[in-house]
Amino acid sequence: MLRVENISVFYGDAQALDDVSLSVDEGAIVAIVGANGAGKTSLIRTIAGMHRPASGRILFRDTDIAGLSSHQVCNLGVGQVAEGRQIFPSLTVSENLDMGAMLPRARAKREQNRERVLAMFPRLKERIAQAAGTLSGGEQQMLAIGRCLMGEPSLIMFDEPSLGLAPTIVHDVLKTIRDLNAAGITCVLVEQNVAVSLKIASQAYVLENGRVTLSGTGAELLADERVRQAYLGI
């Protein structure tokens, strides 16, 4: 469904991604793990059209999306739940959700999607008229996911969805991701919480200093000696 082929990304002179390739099959959960500064967020932002790769191709359903701008990529069905619960704090929960349905592809089905999202996250329904900035961290993450779903994505990239959340909430978020996947949405999951993300991933890649150094199924990487030492501390 998504194929990243040999992309390199630079910020000025600094190279963020070096010849990175990966592929995401339809219906999969693909985990991308790595330390801080390894290039995970750069990878997601590049796929999302927020950075232009210096070289390489990004194929989404066989169209090259490298070089498209972010709103065009979004409208093809590539959703993004960005790092750090990027919501609109002074707008209400309801308005935040509507923002997700601004895409041409999702406008007509707005009411339908809103009902679906509110059924999935009853807490959002309770707080529908509240300013989003007053929600708890977990609720804000739910709102960010719900808002992304309003755009009818067929693939969602989650950037550190468990960052800064209490362990029970982390569990809820990961369950949500699994549920969405079961409902047919392909997921790309960038996480520092390596053990958990490898457990739910069908395919995984390890990024180090902007390069893919290891890949395999989630279970293979969990069993890999290098991964266990570097990321799991075992």
Partner: peptide, 10 residues
């Protein structure tokens, strides 16, 4: 409010 998030929702 949040240009980053605005971009993320397309």
């Amino acid at each position: 409010e949040n240009p980053e998030a605005a971009q993320a929702v397309g």
